[in-house]
Simulated assay, not measured.
Amino acid sequence: MTTWITICDTCKRDGWDQTGATATDGETLAALVESAAADVPGLRTRRTACLMGCKTGCNVAVQARGKLSYTLGNFAPEAEAAAGIVTYAALHADSATGQVPYRSWPQAIKGHFVTRHPPLPDDDGPAGDGTAMTAA
Score class of each variant (00 low, 15 high):
Val86Asn: 03
Arg47Asp: 03
Ala135Met: 07
Asp124Thr: 14
Ser35Lys: 15
Pro41Glu: 02
Gly57Tyr: 06
Leu72Phe: 10
Ala36Cys: 09
Ala83Pro: 10
Leu120Pro: 03
Arg46Leu: 13
Val60His: 06
Pro101Met: 08
Pro106Gln: 08
Leu43Ile: 04
Gly20Cys: 04
Pro41Asn: 00
Leu29Phe: 11
Asn74Cys: 06
Ala61Asp: 07
Cys58Ile: 05
Val114Leu: 14
Gly42Val: 09
Lys110Trp: 07
Glu34Ser: 08
Asp122Pro: 14
Arg116Lys: 13
Gly73Lys: 01
Gly73Ile: 01
Lys110Gly: 05
Thr28Ile: 15
His92Arg: 02
Val60Glu: 06
Cys54Trp: 05
Cys50Trp: 08
Thr3Val: 13
Arg116Gln: 14
Ala36Trp: 01
Asp14Val: 10
Asp124Trp: 10
Arg116Pro: 08
Leu29Ile: 05
Val86Tyr: 02
Met1Pro: 13
Leu120Ala: 12
Ala38Asp: 14
His112Phe: 10
Tyr88Gly: 06
Met133Arg: 11
Ala31Val: 03
Trp16Ile: 04
Tyr88Pro: 08
Ala127Pro: 07
Ala96Val: 03
Val100Cys: 03
Glu80Met: 12
Thr10Cys: 07
Thr134Phe: 13
Ala23Thr: 12
Gly98Lys: 01
Pro106Gly: 10
Gln107Thr: 12
Trp16Pro: 05
Gln63Glu: 13
Asp129Gly: 14
Gly66Thr: 02
Ala37Pro: 08
Arg47Pro: 08
Val86Leu: 03
Ile7Pro: 03
Ala82Tyr: 06
Asp122Ala: 15
Ala79Ile: 08
Trp4Asn: 09
Asp14Lys: 13
Leu120Gln: 10
Ser69Gly: 15
